[in-house]
Design a binder for these strands. Structure first.
Lengths: 158, 158
DNA sequence: TCATCTAGTTCCATAATAGAACCTGTGGGA
DNA sequence: TCCCACAGGTTCTATTATGGAACTAGATGA
């Protein structure tokens, strides 16, 4: 059976999962954000088999999250670079990392954490805030169809 | 071949994906955050077949993201409720929703957006900030092993 | 020149997904 | 009380996706 497509869903969460909701895509983006660009780098970092890596990379290119370009080292090979669309998955990765840090046990001694590069201090926990700055919990939000928004057409986010 | 396990990974992003990195889990959590609790509610909302829904729900219970309890309507059935661990996936869902809103096209007229329930205004875009409050982009962060943290043992997040 | 590296492709066994049919206990109405 | 629809599954089968290994073609480099 064909995997169910969510690309036409009204919910933006479902549409996102349709694009990057598989085993490897987000890990590839994570590595790409760390600076990896070459097929062999991803292969080594992820420990994924080549056929799957090939398919994932091509899918990410098709979706505009990665793009290929001549390798920066001047060789005849090509490399994979994040597009702006790919880089904007940053917040998703931070959220996943923070949740994993707090909720998924890691082998002792090898736990990693995201820090700001300059001061090497942990990044702040992500906060969901209303447009007026109020901190929001899960129960204080809801999804509405665009057009049912209140007052001024503040097209902030989604 | 057994699906590759990431549960022992040092990277918290990988560990999170090991837990909820599949097609349906996050959509179930999304619906649960909206208040859904019953098997049939999830089934109707997601359009997923029963055998898969059963497996996903049981897996989420096993992982402590959902828990079962006697149904709130007093019937003999049971319902699935989010645990604190499950509710803390809120930031992940907001990040996914914001990315989808900005980067994944939706069928015209049916786009949805997350708002704060009180004022019906879009939630602010998530911001990644350093412990001193500086706004951070993808290039200004890195992952380090815990123990290589600078100075004071500020155990903020991950 | 020749071995090695890069970036794949192909082949196969196994696991996951989707859909449908079937099953068991509940709840509610006549 | 009887009966039927509903809730919440389980079982079966077809189709995909995944993982591992083997194989390949072009590029590099000693």
């Amino acid at each position: 059976m064909r995997r169910k497509s969510l690309s036409g869903a009204a919910c933006p969460i479902a549409r996102t999962l349709d694009v990057i909701g598989d085993w490897w895509s987000l890990l590839i983006v994570r590595d790409a954000l760390r600076g990896m660009r070459r097929f062999s780098e991803f292969e080594k970092s992820l420990g994924v088999s080549k056929n799957i890596l090939t398919r994932r990379l091509h899918a990410l290119v098709r979706q505009g999250i990665l793009e290929t370009a001549p390798a920066a080292d001047g060789s005849a090979y090509r490399e994979y670079r994040l597009t702006a669309k790919g880089r904007s998955l940053f917040q998703v990765l931070v959220a996943l990392g923070q949740w994993g840090h707090e909720n998924a046990a890691a082998p002792a001694g090898s736990r990693m954490i995201m820090v700001d590069r300059e001061h090497r201090r942990p990044v702040r926990k992500l906060e969901v805030r209303a447009s007026d700055g109020r901190l929001l919990g899960p129960g204080e939000t809801m999804m509405v169809r665009i057009g049912e928004l209140a007052g001024a057409s503040n097209t902030n986010q989604g």
